[in-house]
Each structure stands twice: as structure tokens, then as C-alpha cells.
């Protein structure tokens, strides 16, 4: 958690450092996603947890991919942005 949190500080600082070049630095902060990283017995797969999410389900890997794709293709005004395809886990 601390390491992932620090990434947000890193990208904001780096984004400002290179803002006047054509380089854009942004982040995607996914919510709990249905990948092998979540073990079959993970608490994040439990119905009780999923019921706390506004979308009531795990994020699909392709939904993270589409956020990355969007930032990579229409990025020019994003500078230190954090996109959160997270099913509402953090609003």
C-alpha cells in the first residue's frame, strides 16, 4: 500500500518536472481486479466484500486496459492525473 501510494507522489512530481516537454506522466489506480493475482480464496472475491462496491463486482482486466489506452492516446491535457477504474471501491 505504501509503495503504491508513493507512486502517486512520484507521478505528480515527475509530471510537473516534464510538463513543458511533450512527455506526460499519469497513473492508473485500479480497484480489485479479476486476475490471477487475486487468489481464488481471496477476501476480495467474497460476496460480502463485492456487495460493498457500487458496481457489485470485480473490475475486469480489459477495463484497466481501456483506461491505459485512453491515457496513452488522448493524454495531452493530463498531467499528474490518476484514473481509477475501480468499480467504485474508492470515490
Amino acid at each position: 500500500m505504501a509503495a503504491k501510494g508513493a507512486v502517486l507522489g512520484l507521478i505528480k512530481s515527475l509530471a510537473m518536472e516534464v510538463a513543458q516537454t511533450a512527455i506526460r506522466v499519469n497513473a492508473v489506480a485500479p480497484g480489485p481486479t479479476d486476475t490471477p493475482l487475486l487468489a481464488p480464496d481471496s477476501l476480495w472475491r467474497e460476496p460480502e466484500y463485492l456487495a460493498t462496491l457500487p458496481l457489485g463486482r470485480l473490475v475486469r482486466p480489459e477495463e484497466i486496459a481501456s483506461a491505459v489506452y485512453y491515457l496513452a492516446t488522448e493524454e495531452s491535457m493530463y498531467c499528474g492525473e490518476v484514473l481509477s477504474p475501480n468499480a467504485g471501491a474508492v470515490i
Binding site: 480497484g31 457500487p54 458496481l55 475486469r60 481501456s66 485512453y70 491535457m77 493530463y78 484514473l83 477504474p85
Partner: peptide, 16 residues
């Protein structure tokens, strides 16, 4: 369709 996992989010294309 690409934002189907985004809810309650505030996008900020503000140039920083």
C-alpha cells in the same frame, strides 16, 4: 464502453 468500471470519478484534463 471503455469506462465501464469508472464510477464517481473526477477526470481532470487540466494540463496539471
Amino acid at each position: 464502453p471503455g469506462s465501464s468500471a469508472m464510477v464517481g470519478q473526477i477526470l481532470q484534463p487540466s494540463g496539471g
